[in-house]
Design a protein around this nucleic acid. Structure first.
Length: 97
DNA sequence: CAGGGGGCTAAGG
DNA sequence: GCCTTAGCCCCCT
């Protein structure tokens, strides 16, 4: 798929961007798919570092419990929830189904 | 080099 | 449902 010149961060972002609309994934799954098993936290750290105008579907990335790991008072929480709903998903008590 | 923390995960109490 | 323990890893002091 592409050369090995990609850094861990790039690979992760690539996997995140590879997630189809209406489909969700977990940090561990992304890390694993990126060939970095155990980098779950690193994935979160990277996504969190993304710019507000990022085009990466970071909102499709949830934790292993399929729940939004943000506090309900966080803007990211509402934003992610809203985007997921826009993609046809449903959120029940911070949980994505 | 040591210490603390983080959109994590799984198992236990 | 919540918190703790333990594991994995990276980044900043």
């Amino acid at each position: 798929m592409n050369t090995s010149a990609a850094s861990n961060k790039d690979v992760i972002l690539q996997q995140v961007a590879a997630v189809p609309a209406g489909q969700i994934s977990s940090y561990g799954a992304i890390a694993k798919a990126a060939g970095l098993p155990g980098y779950a936290r690193y994935v979160g750290h990277v996504l969190k570092s993304l710019p507000k105008d990022t085009r990466l579907p970071w909102h499709r990335i949830l934790n292993a419990q399929k729940k939004i790991s943000f506090p309900p008072a966080s803007l990211a929480f509402k934003e992610q929830k809203r985007r997921l709903e826009e993609e046809g998903l449903t959120i029940l008590n911070d949980k994505v189904v």
